[in-house]
């Protein structure tokens, strides 16, 4: 509280009845500055409320339009064609999303964590580490569509096919900087004393990192990984250039177009057929639930590691 009030002493002063001219310290709404203060507070509260509304508006519409049409068999059916008015689902898209995010995680998570070890431990304070950190920050802000074009140039043009592999590479490009930056923070938060103790016991620096630093930092590292996965799972633009879309099941034995939830939503959102639009809403609900699940899992891990450290 910032209200400034006059402190009255414990005993009543002897000259209590004598009128003393005191500065007015109570908040008085007739004074311009206090009125201004209250008005700005109200405005700020109003703007914050407006900022919080979209989340609920999005979730509400997702539930209203997505949940009402939800049937369990959608999770293992192929997408409906324009002529179907009932049935169908997005099983292949869920599988495609999981598969591509899996490829991306395999590529990005170990890379990101090792790079973070360099930034936080071996290269700490060096110019090289500062430059790499800067590059990682710039990469987090890079438009995701450019990651897609990069993977298109690297993988699609080289192999001659759109594929889940290319999609995975594009998503990995987006995940790496997130994993690097969050893992670096997590590794830095490990108390120096623990590392010193391990060194004192005669551990080599590799042993310190693998047996002490990383295990201690792991919950927070995983928080970053969860955030990166959540981001990758929702990405659409990079997949348009790499995996495109498919109405059929994912095949592991060859490179070909692969479905994903995000691209399915994009394609069906512009469909002239009501049934496909309904399907887009239900797929969006499933995608958002998936993404929120990973986000909340990350938050829980973060909260737990905060808790254990105190």
């Amino acid at each position: 509280m910032t209200d400034i009030r006059v402190q009255t002493g414990p005993q009543p002063s002897p000259e209590r009845d004598v009128p003393v001219e005191r500065p007015k310290l109570e908040h008085d709404l007739r004074a311009v500055r206090t009125l201004f203060d209250r008005l700005l507070t109200a405005l700020c509260a109003l703007l914050s409320l407006v900022a919080a509304l979209p989340l609920f508006a999005v979730l509400w519409l997702l539930i209203e339009r997505g949940a009402t049409n939800f049937r369990l068999d959608m999770l293992w059916s192929l997408p409906p064609s324009g002529l179907d008015t009932t049935g169908g689902g997005f099983g292949n898209a869920i599988l495609g999303t999981v598969y591509m995010v899996g490829i991306a995680s395999v590529l990005a998570v170990p890379t990101g964590i090792l790079a973070a070890i360099f930034l936080a431990e071996y290269g700490d304070g060096t110019r090289l580490a500062a430059v790499i950190r800067f590059a990682a920050k710039v990469l987090t802000g890079m438009p995701s569509i450019l990651a897609g074009i990069f993977a298109y140039a690297m993988v699609v043009l080289a192999t001659g096919h759109f594929s889940a592999l290319a999609g995975g590479v594009a998503l990995a490009v987006l995940m790496v900087p997130i994993v690097v930056l969050t893992a670096e923070q997590a590794i830095r938060a490990v108390p120096q004393k623990m590392k010193d103790a391990a060194v004192g016991m005669g551990a080599t620096s590799a042993q310190v990192v693998m047996r002490v630093t990383l295990p201690t930092a792991m919950p927070s590292v995983l928080t970053g990984v969860m955030l990166a996965i959540a981001r990758a799972a929702g990405e659409t633009a990079p997949l348009l250039f790499t995996a495109q879309f498919s109405n059929y099941w994912l095949r592991l034995d060859r490179l070909e177009d692969t479905a994903s939830l995000a691209v399915l939503i994009y394609q069906f959102s512009g469909s002239p057929y009501e049934h496909q639009i309904e399907m887009a809403w239900t797929a969006a609900l499933v995608l958002v639930l998936l993404v929120l699940l990973f986000n909340i899992a990350g938050q829980v891990l973060a909260a737990r590691s905060d808790h254990s450290r105190h």
Binding site: A129, L146, A153, V173, S205, A206
Partner: peptide, 30 residues
């Protein structure tokens, strides 16, 4: 092991830098 981890971590960290450069170069090339 020690040397391997040190060098490996450094190589992958430099890889982040290379990735940014590669994005510019690849898109530039196409």
């Amino acid at each position: 092991m020690d040397l391997g981890l040190r060098r490996g971590a450094q190589a992958l960290a430099v890889g982040v830098l290379v990735l940014l450069a590669a994005i510019v170069v690849e898109i530039g090339a196409v």
